[in-house]
């Protein structure tokens, strides 16, 4: 039986760095493991769909350099992408594709 005290153990929410250095494909579940500041920004951006640097700066109420660093950190970790638009670049959450399940082909074929 699981130890119920683990429910409050914040260590379970630590996100491991990807060893290859290449941004991995992130899922919604990965978002839960981000530290509070990054997670909060991602949550806000998911609701906004996208935002410019100026909008992010206004939301965070922090200096532009700090916002830039935070966004770059999220890009490096594979959570965010920059989309070029007519006016200025926009930051958009990078959502992963929900992967299919591995089941023997004959089982799938029987269902279709």
């Amino acid at each position: 039986m699981a130890d119920q005290s683990n429910m409050d153990d914040q260590n379970e929410w630590q996100l491991a760095r990807h060893p290859s250095g290449k941004p991995p494909t992130r899922t919604m579940a990965d978002l839960l493991f981000l530290p509070e500041t990054e997670r909060s920004l991602m949550n806000w951006l998911l609701r906004q769909q996208s935002a410019t640097l100026a909008e992010v700066v206004a939301h965070l109420n922090q200096p532009e350099a700090m916002a830039r660093n935070l966004l770059q950190e999220l890009i490096d970790q594979g959570f965010m992408q920059v989309v070029e638009s007519a006016d200025e670049p926009e930051y958009r959450p990078k959502m992963a594709i929900r992967k299919g399940r591995k089941v023997p082909t004959n089982l799938w074929d029987a269902l279709e």
Partner: peptide
């Protein structure tokens, strides 16, 4: 239903 389970889908499309 099987197609969704088999092939997955772009979760971001739901938000859009």
């Amino acid at each position: 239903i099987a197609k969704v389970l088999r092939e997955g889908f772009d979760v971001g499309l739901l938000n859009d």
